[in-house]
């Protein structure tokens, strides 16, 4: 279970804010990182130290300025920094799953449909995908009467659990988790922790931001530290 799934090297990321006088913010420089199958790494560091930006780089959501992010995809390595968009989409469909902090609610799309979507995108039949979605939502304590509704009116904690279900349903070999328990009460937090541990035990490589120390202690095998608060203007 020690096969590397992501190997990043020399990663750099900054932002140039053209609408704010061309201010240049340096966020990350020279970051080397790897995570293996069956391992959970917690990103550690103060607010503004670049943890979320780093996670977004690993998903191909942000573009790196330098370096490479090799992801083991099928039996091959894909560099997310240089891969064309179609390749990045294939990596997301099959290999790298991401749980953002907030659910992107779609008008008129029910919770169970939203959760089933990553399976549907892989060609799983609607009935089978929806059955999996229902089972996972049940495990996360979302009652049957809510599952057929669009989550726009759900509470923050309910939306977050729908988001987690959507991120975990497809058993991606790599999971990126951005504060997956931030809006949850203790009981629901424990349910999510159990799911994260189960994913790790089945061999997923997990990289996450967990501000809750108890959650971090329960799921993380090691910490990956980020230095003093940046971004800071340079030049």
């Amino acid at each position: 279970m020690s096969e590397p799934m992501i190997v990043a090297s020399g990663l750099a990321k900054g932002f140039t804010l053209h609408t704010q006088g061309g201010t240049r913010l340096a966020v990350l420089a020279g970051v080397d990182f790897s995570v293996a199958a069956g391992e959970c790494v917690a990103l550690d560091g103060p607010s503004g130290s670049g943890k979320s930006s780093f996670l977004r780089l690993l998903y191909g959501n942000y573009r790196a300025d330098a370096g490479r992010i090799a992801v083991r995809h099928r039996d091959d390595w894909v560099d997310l920094v240089t891969a064309p968009p179609r390749r990045v989409l294939a990596v997301r469909r099959e290999t790298v799953g991401y749980v953002s902090q907030f659910l992107r609610v779609l008008p008129r799309v029910s919770a169970r449909m939203l959760v089933a979507e990553p399976l549907r995108a892989r060609g799983v039949a609607a009935d089978a995908a929806l059955a999996r979605a229902d089972a996972l939502l049940e495990r996360l304590g979302i009652p049957a009467r809510l599952r057929g509704l669009a989550p726009a009116t759900f509470s923050g904690g309910e939306q977050q659990r729908v988001n987690i279900a959507r991120g975990l349903i497809a058993d991606h070999p790599v999971l990126l988790l951005d504060e997956p328990t931030a809006a949850l009460d203790a009981a629901n937090r424990d349910r999510v922790v159990a799911l994260i541990r189960a994913a790790r035990d089945r061999g997923a490589a997990i990289v996450g931001i967990f501000h809750d120390a108890a959650v971090r202690a329960a799921v993380a095998d090691r910490l990956f530290g980020f230095a003093a608060p940046s971004p800071r203007p340079v030049g």
Partner: peptide, 21 residues
């Protein structure tokens, strides 16, 4: 040009940044 979420979340060109902001 690029992946939709990448262009919207990490726009590079001044005009795209203006559109998004």
């Amino acid at each position: 040009a690029g992946l939709t979420d990448q262009v919207l979340d990490d726009p590079q060109h001044p005009y795209t940044q203006l559109l998004v902001s």
